[in-house]
Design a protein around this nucleic acid. Structure first.
Lengths: 201, 201
DNA sequence: TTTTTATTTGAACAGTGTTTAATAGTTTTG
DNA sequence: CAAAACTATTAAACACTGTTCAAATAAAAA
């Protein structure tokens, strides 16, 4: 078993190596602007080799997509410690935005690449878990008297939409219309406005 | 002058013909999946001909981008008639979402294609006008006592983010995480939640 | 009619994702 | 140990991509 085991480890190493090369280029140039040849070049292998480990380009992307979600979720889990659900919700939003700022390319990969022609498999699951978690936080907020008479699911969707909307405008560089305001200002103060609304509602 | 005039008209016709072919394919397959050869084929011309009328692929895209904004703005201008600014704001949001539902591909072209490597010229101007208009509506709402003690610009950005966020999740088909709810429900009720927040704040 | 100009084309270039036959390297089997 | 079997890798090929450009054609002006 020792030989077969080593083989498998080598295979996993190569898998990782490709992923490392791909990540580097995907995050620098985006999905469309990254070619298999670029990746192959990065790790000094032939383009064909990559197809021995991955079905196609989108499968490589998909793994990074999952990776990004794990990174984000790890970052959000920190706030499990925050007792008050409303404070936790606010912190989650802030942290989500911070993620978009720190890892813009991951964010693009995770939320701004078209999902319509993609098979909704595994990586999709992890997103659903995140949504369920957020929904639970909102429910707890409502238990404590916030957001009265609003349907939990739809309200959660709206909260996520707002934060994602802010991040999306930032990531696609659509913030320029609000001139004499930096991205930093817009995102932070825009979010603050939203939090104020949440507090009042 | 008659000949030169006819010439110019023919040139404009060809310009339009390319745009028509391009629109058809761009809106069906998206930016990246549309090739110059596809467009040329659609209008029964050679690929090279297109470069006689357009600098490059992105210039064709840009014209359609502008076209989309004109369509949207025309749709929004209807609500100039609504007197109460808050009612107008609510109607604008609804209508914006309706546009995303009716013209998902235009929406993708207008708001969900990366602007980072694009020269921020003309078409950009029309977006700024729309933002200025929205800002004015928000200002009028505040004049009537809504959204007290919130900075107009940032608040406007937040409102736009929310509506765009909802549309963005819809357009990229990221709504599946909220299962047993249709897109229609999510968007409409999510927006209703937001409006309720606005009313309470 | 000839010259000049405007328009159109097809071929070429360098790139893309992906497939595949051949090859070299390694492991298992006789 | 040698032969067969399997694994991993590659270069070449295919059908695409955006873009350029010399050549051909059509139209207008002289």
């Amino acid at each position: 078993m020792s030989i077969a085991q080593r083989k498998q480890e080598e295979k996993q190493e190569m898998h990782k190596r490709i992923l490392n090369g791909a990540r580097k280029i995907f995050l620098k140039k985006g999905y469309e602007q990254t070619s298999i040849r670029n990746i192959a070049n990065e790790i000094s292998y032939s383009p064909g080799s990559i197809y021995f480990y991955f079905k196609d380009k989108s499968e490589i992307f998909h793994e990074l997509h999952k990776e990004g979600f794990q990174l984000l979720l790890g970052q959000l889990r920190v706030f499990d410690a925050v007792r008050d659900p409303f404070e936790r919700l606010k912190a989650l939003g802030s942290s989500f935005m911070q993620f978009a700022k720190d890892h813009t390319d991951y964010y693009n990969l995770m939320f701004l690449v078209d999902e319509r022609n993609r098979k909704q498999g595994e990586g999709f699951q992890i997103a659903k878990e995140a949504i369920d978690y957020l929904t639970e936080v909102v429910r707890q907020c409502q238990e404590k008297g916030h957001f009265k008479n609003l349907h939990t699911d739809c309200f959660t969707f709206m909260v996520l939409s707002t934060v994602h909307g802010i991040c999306s405008l930032f990531c696609k560089d659509h913030t320029a219309g609000f001139m004499n305001r930096t991205d930093e200002e817009l995102m932070q103060h825009g979010y603050d406005c939203f939090v104020t609304l949440l507090e009042r509602g």
